[in-house]
Protein backbone atom coordinates (compact mmCIF):
# COMPACT_ATOMS: atom_id res chain seq x y z
CA UNK A 1 0.00 0.00 0.00
CA UNK A 2 1.51 3.38 -0.93
CA UNK A 3 2.34 5.93 1.74
CA UNK A 4 -0.83 7.27 3.31
CA UNK A 5 -1.63 10.74 4.57
CA UNK A 6 -1.92 11.01 8.37
CA UNK A 7 -5.70 11.14 8.13
CA UNK A 8 -5.83 8.18 5.75
CA UNK A 9 -3.47 6.22 7.99
CA UNK A 10 -5.81 6.75 10.93
CA UNK A 11 -8.75 5.80 8.75
CA UNK A 12 -6.98 2.59 7.73
CA UNK A 13 -6.25 1.84 11.39
CA UNK A 14 -9.89 2.52 12.23
CA UNK A 15 -11.11 0.12 9.56
CA UNK A 16 -8.76 -2.59 10.74
CA UNK A 17 -9.64 -1.90 14.37
CA UNK A 18 -13.31 -2.16 13.52
CA UNK A 19 -12.68 -5.45 11.73
CA UNK A 20 -10.96 -6.77 14.85
CA UNK A 21 -14.42 -6.91 16.43
CA UNK A 22 -15.42 -9.73 14.11
CA UNK A 23 -15.55 -13.28 15.34
CA UNK A 24 -13.58 -15.12 12.69
CA UNK A 25 -13.60 -18.59 14.18
CA UNK A 26 -14.76 -21.18 11.68
CA UNK A 27 -15.50 -24.84 11.31
CA UNK A 28 -14.15 -25.01 7.77
CA UNK A 29 -15.60 -28.43 7.05
CA UNK A 30 -19.08 -27.33 8.06
CA UNK A 31 -18.91 -24.07 6.10
CA UNK A 32 -17.62 -25.93 3.05
CA UNK A 33 -20.29 -28.57 3.43
CA UNK A 34 -23.04 -25.95 3.62
CA UNK A 35 -21.67 -24.13 0.59
CA UNK A 36 -21.48 -27.33 -1.42
CA UNK A 37 -24.83 -28.44 -0.09
CA UNK A 38 -26.54 -25.30 -1.33
CA UNK A 39 -25.54 -26.30 -4.79
CA UNK A 40 -26.26 -29.96 -4.59
CA UNK A 41 -29.57 -29.79 -2.83
CA UNK A 42 -30.70 -26.44 -4.18
CA UNK A 43 -34.39 -25.90 -3.70
CA UNK A 44 -34.80 -29.03 -1.68
CA UNK A 45 -32.77 -27.63 1.15
CA UNK A 46 -34.84 -24.49 1.20
CA UNK A 47 -37.91 -26.65 1.48
CA UNK A 48 -36.40 -28.24 4.55
CA UNK A 49 -36.26 -31.67 2.99
CA UNK A 50 -33.23 -33.45 4.35
CA UNK A 51 -33.19 -36.33 1.90
CA UNK A 52 -29.70 -37.08 0.66
CA UNK A 53 -28.93 -36.27 -2.94
CA UNK A 54 -28.87 -39.84 -4.28
CA UNK A 55 -32.40 -40.43 -3.03
CA UNK A 56 -33.63 -37.34 -4.79
CA UNK A 57 -31.86 -38.27 -7.95
CA UNK A 58 -33.45 -41.71 -7.83
CA UNK A 59 -36.83 -40.14 -7.12
CA UNK A 60 -36.52 -37.59 -9.92
CA UNK A 61 -35.31 -40.16 -12.40
CA UNK A 62 -38.22 -42.36 -11.41
CA UNK A 63 -40.69 -39.52 -11.94
CA UNK A 64 -39.09 -38.66 -15.26
CA UNK A 65 -39.28 -42.27 -16.40
CA UNK A 66 -42.91 -42.48 -15.27
CA UNK A 67 -43.75 -39.32 -17.19
CA UNK A 68 -42.07 -40.61 -20.33
CA UNK A 69 -43.76 -43.98 -20.13
CA UNK A 70 -47.13 -42.33 -19.47
CA UNK A 71 -46.65 -40.03 -22.43
CA UNK A 72 -45.78 -42.94 -24.69
CA UNK A 73 -48.73 -44.99 -23.48
CA UNK A 74 -51.07 -42.13 -24.24
CA UNK A 75 -49.86 -42.36 -27.81
CA UNK A 76 -48.57 -38.84 -28.04
CA UNK A 77 -46.24 -38.68 -30.95
CA UNK A 78 -44.82 -35.49 -29.43
CA UNK A 79 -43.38 -37.74 -26.76
CA UNK A 80 -40.55 -38.47 -29.12
CA UNK A 81 -39.49 -34.90 -28.82
CA UNK A 82 -39.39 -35.19 -25.09
CA UNK A 83 -37.24 -38.29 -25.25
CA UNK A 84 -34.49 -36.17 -26.69
CA UNK A 85 -33.83 -34.68 -23.30
CA UNK A 86 -30.91 -32.31 -23.38
CA UNK A 87 -28.71 -32.08 -20.30
CA UNK A 88 -30.41 -29.68 -17.95
CA UNK A 89 -28.67 -26.53 -16.86
CA UNK A 90 -26.70 -26.86 -13.68
CA UNK A 91 -28.77 -25.70 -10.70
CA UNK A 92 -25.79 -23.56 -9.79
CA UNK A 93 -26.24 -21.41 -12.86
CA UNK A 94 -28.38 -18.47 -11.88
CA UNK A 95 -27.23 -15.90 -14.39
CA UNK A 96 -29.27 -15.36 -17.49
CA UNK A 97 -27.31 -16.87 -20.34
CA UNK A 98 -25.90 -14.26 -22.65
CA UNK A 99 -27.45 -14.25 -26.07
CA UNK A 100 -24.98 -15.92 -28.32
CA UNK A 101 -24.24 -14.42 -31.69
CA UNK A 102 -25.65 -17.61 -33.07
CA UNK A 103 -29.03 -16.83 -31.48
CA UNK A 104 -29.64 -14.54 -34.43
CA UNK A 105 -28.91 -15.86 -37.88
CA UNK A 106 -25.67 -14.63 -39.36
CA UNK A 107 -26.13 -11.86 -41.85
CA UNK A 108 -24.66 -11.84 -45.32
CA UNK A 109 -22.38 -9.02 -44.22
CA UNK A 110 -23.65 -6.59 -46.83
CA UNK A 111 -25.87 -3.51 -46.86
CA UNK A 112 -27.99 -2.42 -43.95
CA UNK A 113 -28.53 -4.96 -41.18
CA UNK A 114 -29.82 -5.37 -37.67
CA UNK A 115 -27.08 -6.97 -35.64
CA UNK A 116 -26.72 -8.50 -32.19
CA UNK A 117 -24.23 -10.40 -30.13
CA UNK A 118 -22.08 -10.09 -27.06
CA UNK A 119 -19.03 -8.19 -26.04
CA UNK A 120 -16.56 -9.45 -23.48
CA UNK A 121 -14.18 -7.22 -21.64
CA UNK A 122 -10.70 -8.68 -21.74
CA UNK A 123 -8.63 -5.92 -20.23
CA UNK A 124 -9.16 -2.71 -18.32
CA UNK A 125 -6.23 -0.39 -17.82
CA UNK A 126 -6.12 3.31 -17.01
CA UNK A 127 -9.61 3.97 -18.26
CA UNK A 128 -9.06 2.04 -21.49
CA UNK A 129 -11.19 -1.04 -21.94
CA UNK A 130 -10.29 -3.66 -24.52
CA UNK A 131 -13.13 -5.94 -25.49
CA UNK A 132 -13.95 -8.55 -28.07
CA UNK A 133 -17.21 -8.33 -29.98
CA UNK A 134 -18.80 -11.55 -31.19
CA UNK A 135 -21.66 -10.48 -33.43
CA UNK A 136 -23.86 -12.10 -36.02
CA UNK A 137 -22.41 -9.78 -38.67
CA UNK A 138 -18.72 -10.19 -39.42
CA UNK A 139 -18.35 -6.50 -40.19
CA UNK A 140 -18.87 -5.56 -36.55
CA UNK A 141 -17.08 -8.47 -34.91
CA UNK A 142 -13.56 -7.86 -33.73
CA UNK A 143 -11.57 -6.08 -31.09
CA UNK A 144 -12.87 -2.88 -29.57
CA UNK A 145 -10.98 -0.26 -27.61
CA UNK A 146 -13.03 2.00 -25.36
CA UNK A 147 -11.55 5.13 -23.87
CA UNK A 148 -14.02 6.10 -21.23
CA UNK A 149 -14.50 8.80 -18.68
CA UNK A 150 -16.88 8.51 -15.78
CA UNK A 151 -18.69 11.18 -13.82
CA UNK A 152 -19.82 9.50 -10.63
CA UNK A 153 -22.65 10.53 -8.37
CA UNK A 154 -23.96 8.87 -5.24
CA UNK A 155 -26.05 6.23 -6.97
CA UNK A 156 -25.26 6.53 -10.66
CA UNK A 157 -22.52 7.49 -13.07
CA UNK A 158 -22.57 8.97 -16.53
CA UNK A 159 -20.06 7.61 -19.02
CA UNK A 160 -18.66 9.18 -22.16
CA UNK A 161 -15.81 8.46 -24.48
CA UNK A 162 -14.80 6.89 -27.75
CA UNK A 163 -14.84 3.44 -29.23
CA UNK A 164 -12.72 2.03 -32.02
CA UNK A 165 -13.74 -1.40 -33.24
CA UNK A 166 -11.56 -3.05 -35.81
CA UNK A 167 -11.07 -6.26 -37.71
CA UNK A 168 -9.13 -7.31 -40.78
CA UNK A 169 -11.47 -5.61 -43.26
CA UNK A 170 -11.77 -2.19 -41.67
CA UNK A 171 -12.66 -0.21 -38.57
CA UNK A 172 -15.48 1.67 -36.89
CA UNK A 173 -14.79 4.70 -34.77
CA UNK A 174 -16.90 7.26 -32.96
CA UNK A 175 -18.23 8.56 -29.70
CA UNK A 176 -20.27 6.93 -26.96
CA UNK A 177 -22.43 8.14 -24.08
CA UNK A 178 -24.29 6.22 -21.45
CA UNK A 179 -24.95 5.63 -17.81
CA UNK A 180 -24.21 3.03 -15.16
CA UNK A 181 -25.82 2.28 -11.85
CA UNK A 182 -25.94 -0.37 -9.19
CA UNK A 183 -22.21 0.08 -8.58
CA UNK A 184 -21.39 -0.17 -12.23
CA UNK A 185 -22.86 -3.62 -12.64
CA UNK A 186 -25.73 -2.32 -14.77
CA UNK A 187 -25.22 -0.02 -17.68
CA UNK A 188 -26.40 1.22 -21.05
CA UNK A 189 -24.00 2.86 -23.48
CA UNK A 190 -24.82 3.95 -27.03
CA UNK A 191 -22.21 4.66 -29.71
CA UNK A 192 -22.35 6.21 -33.17
CA UNK A 193 -19.49 4.75 -35.18
CA UNK A 194 -18.32 5.71 -38.63
CA UNK A 195 -16.78 3.07 -40.87
CA UNK A 196 -13.41 3.23 -42.54
CA UNK A 197 -11.39 0.90 -44.73
CA UNK A 198 -13.75 -1.73 -46.05
CA UNK A 199 -16.63 -0.11 -44.17
CA UNK A 200 -16.17 3.43 -45.50
CA UNK A 201 -19.50 5.10 -46.17
CA UNK A 202 -21.32 3.06 -43.52
CA UNK A 203 -22.47 3.90 -40.02
CA UNK A 204 -22.78 1.46 -37.15
CA UNK A 205 -25.07 2.52 -34.31
CA UNK A 206 -24.90 0.21 -31.34
CA UNK A 207 -26.06 -0.08 -27.77
CA UNK A 208 -24.35 -2.30 -25.29
CA UNK A 209 -25.96 -3.01 -22.00
CA UNK A 210 -25.59 -5.10 -18.92
CA UNK A 211 -28.85 -5.61 -17.06
CA UNK A 212 -28.02 -8.80 -15.29
CA UNK A 213 -25.38 -7.73 -12.85
CA UNK A 214 -22.64 -9.21 -15.00
CA UNK A 215 -19.79 -6.80 -15.36
CA UNK A 216 -17.48 -8.30 -17.94
CA UNK A 217 -19.92 -9.38 -20.64
CA UNK A 218 -22.41 -7.12 -22.34
CA UNK A 219 -25.30 -7.65 -24.69
CA UNK A 220 -24.87 -5.67 -27.88
CA UNK A 221 -27.52 -4.71 -30.40
CA UNK A 222 -27.30 -2.29 -33.25
CA UNK A 223 -27.81 -1.40 -36.86
CA UNK A 224 -25.53 -0.90 -39.82
CA UNK A 225 -26.59 1.37 -42.62
CA UNK A 226 -25.06 3.13 -45.61
CA UNK A 227 -24.81 6.81 -44.75
CA UNK A 228 -23.63 9.15 -42.06
CA UNK A 229 -24.72 9.48 -38.45
CA UNK A 230 -27.52 12.01 -37.91
CA UNK A 231 -26.30 15.56 -37.58
CA UNK A 232 -28.13 17.27 -34.74
CA UNK A 233 -26.67 20.63 -35.69
CA UNK A 234 -28.28 20.43 -39.11
CA UNK A 235 -30.41 23.56 -39.44
CA UNK A 236 -33.14 21.51 -41.10
CA UNK A 237 -33.64 19.31 -38.05
CA UNK A 238 -37.20 19.99 -36.86
Amino acid sequence: MPELSPFEARLAAAVRGFADGADTRVDAAEVASKAIGRRRFGAFTSLGLPLPLPSWIVLLLGLLLLALVGSTMLGGSRGEDRLAVAPSASPATTERPAPSPTSMPATDGKGDEVVSGTETQVQLSRGVVTATSAMNDRRVSGTGTFRIGVDGYDQVSSEWGTLRLENTAGAWEGSCTGATWDDGSRSVVACWLVGSGGYAGYTYYRIHRSMTGRTATFDVEGVIFPGSPPNLTDPEVP
Partner: peptide
Protein backbone atom coordinates in the same frame (compact mmCIF):
# COMPACT_ATOMS: atom_id res chain seq x y z
CA UNK B 1 -14.84 0.41 -0.52
CA UNK B 2 -13.04 1.23 2.74
CA UNK B 3 -12.90 -2.42 3.74
CA UNK B 4 -11.46 -3.56 0.41
CA UNK B 5 -8.92 -0.75 0.44
CA UNK B 6 -7.77 -0.68 4.05
CA UNK B 7 -8.70 -4.04 5.58
CA UNK B 8 -8.02 -6.24 2.56
CA UNK B 9 -5.23 -3.97 1.32
CA UNK B 10 -6.38 -3.97 -2.30
CA UNK B 11 -5.36 -1.04 -4.46
CA UNK B 12 -7.67 0.88 -6.77
CA UNK B 13 -6.64 -1.16 -9.80
CA UNK B 14 -7.39 -4.45 -8.06
CA UNK B 15 -10.73 -3.21 -6.73
CA UNK B 16 -11.60 -1.82 -10.14
CA UNK B 17 -10.66 -5.00 -11.94
CA UNK B 18 -12.72 -7.13 -9.57
CA UNK B 19 -15.66 -4.75 -9.68
CA UNK B 20 -15.49 -4.21 -13.43
CA UNK B 21 -14.88 -0.49 -13.10
CA UNK B 22 -11.99 1.72 -14.10
CA UNK B 23 -9.35 2.22 -11.42
CA UNK B 24 -9.82 5.95 -11.91
CA UNK B 25 -13.44 5.63 -10.80
CA UNK B 26 -12.40 3.73 -7.69
CA UNK B 27 -9.75 6.34 -6.87
CA UNK B 28 -12.27 9.11 -7.41
CA UNK B 29 -14.85 7.48 -5.14
Amino acid sequence: LLALRYEAGLDSSQIGALAGRPASTVRWR
